[in-house]
Amino acid sequence: MSRIGASALSVVLAAILTLTVQTGVLILVVAVIVVVQGLLASAPAPADARGRSIPTPRSAATMSAGLVSCVVAMDPTLLLGADGSSVGQDGLVSTGVMAGILPGVAVGVFVALVAQMLRRDDRRELVLSTSSAISLALFASLASAWIGAARASSGPDVVTIAAVGLAASLLVWMIPIDRFVCGAIAVTVGAAASAVAALMVGGLPTWVFGVAVGSGTALFAILGQVLARAWSQGRVHASAGWGFPGAMAIAMAGPIVYLGGQLVTAGF
């Protein structure tokens, strides 16, 4: 049941992303991504060998990383140096490579370390606790790649094509059959759905582009759910059972969508 709930949430989030990107108002896309990052911050704390939850301050690190990555993804020129300087030229190049992720992760790491210093317990399992918080910060930063994709010249079309493939694959992923068989079918369906979507929108290359983006988005969305369910270790409350896995599918698919937008810009 939790897999169905998580997949349904991912489909709803993908549909909302599609609707918001079609409005052309970037701040609406950012709002959806912030919601996704909030769901990532709700991930359950890691457990030790006995199954006991380890105190892990993670919300601040996750959300700070996510918000910084969103701000930079909205306006990558924030990373540029002075006009005409070598720093400015290097920054101009780096903005084409998901510029918001590294600053977001850097902030998340710093906040995670400060949060560990402020723990009032004996800081047991310090390494596992810290690595979990930093991992969530990374996932939250990856989600901002949807914003970078939406800013591309054909961003609305790319996001729509990717979201269609993601939604179609996760609808198949709900089917209670062997997971490997279901995963293969889901990726195939996602690629086909994105290919059809690519043919229906104007101004994009061919159905081949839809197959490439759709299959990649479907694969990483499924991997995101699998990773999140393994992270949750069988816990079935709302955040662990479907909120966190549903958001992970969106976050993991983000870089693929971004790369699709860059391919279109480059004249794929």
Score class of each variant (00 low, 15 high):
Val187His: 03
Ser194Pro: 12
Leu223Cys: 07
Phe209His: 06
Ser194Phe: 14
Val226Cys: 01
Leu223Glu: 07
Ala218Leu: 00
Gly210Leu: 01
Ile222Arg: 10
Gly183Pro: 04
Ile222Gln: 05
Val189Cys: 03
Gly202Tyr: 00
Phe220Ala: 08
Gly203Glu: 04
Gly202Ala: 15
Val196Lys: 13
Ala218Pro: 09
Leu223Ile: 03
Val189Ala: 11
Gln225Trp: 09
Ala197Met: 13
Gly214Pro: 09
Ser215Glu: 02
Ala197Ser: 15
Pro205Cys: 06
Ala218Gly: 02
Gly202Glu: 12
Ala212Thr: 09
Ala197Ile: 02
Val181Gly: 13
Ala218Gln: 02
Gly214Arg: 05
Trp231His: 15
Ala184His: 03
Thr188Pro: 02
Ala195Gln: 03
Trp207Asn: 05
Trp231Asp: 15
Ala193Tyr: 12
Ser215Phe: 08
Val196Ile: 15
Val181Phe: 14
Phe220Val: 09
Val208Ser: 09
Ala198Lys: 01
Ala193Cys: 10
Gly216Cys: 08
Gly214Asp: 05
Thr217Tyr: 02
Ala186Gly: 03
Ala192Lys: 08
Ala218Cys: 00
Ala184Asn: 03
Pro205Lys: 00
Leu219Ile: 03
Val187Trp: 11
Ile185Asp: 02
Ala193Asp: 06
Met200Trp: 12
Ala184Pro: 06
Phe220Arg: 03
Val201Tyr: 13
Val189Pro: 10
Val213Ile: 15
Ala198Asp: 05
Gly216Thr: 07
Ser194Ala: 15
Val201Ala: 08
Ala193Phe: 10
Ala212Glu: 00
Val181Glu: 08
Val208Ala: 12
Gly216Leu: 01
Met200Asn: 15
Leu204Ile: 07
Val196Pro: 11
Leu199Ser: 13
Ile185Asn: 03
Val189Ser: 07
Leu199Pro: 04
Ala184Glu: 04
Thr188Arg: 00
Met200Cys: 13
Val208Met: 09
Ser215Pro: 07
Leu223Val: 08
Leu199Gly: 15
Val208Phe: 13
Val201Glu: 14
Val213Thr: 12
Val189Glu: 03
Ala184Tyr: 08
Ala192Glu: 09
Gly216Val: 10
Thr217Leu: 01
Pro205Thr: 04
Gly216Gln: 07
Ala228Asp: 12
Val211Phe: 13
Arg229Tyr: 11
Val196Met: 14
Val196Asp: 07
Ile222His: 05
Gly203His: 12
Leu199Gln: 13
Phe209Leu: 03
Ser215Arg: 04
Val187Lys: 07
Thr188Glu: 01
Gly224Asn: 09
Gly190Lys: 03
Ser194Gln: 11
Gln225Leu: 15
Gly202Lys: 04
Ser215Tyr: 04
Val187Leu: 09
Gly216Ala: 05
Phe209Pro: 04
Ala212Gly: 04
Ala230Trp: 14
Gly183Cys: 03
Val208Trp: 12
Gly203Leu: 02
Thr188Asp: 01
Leu219Pro: 09
Ala195Arg: 05
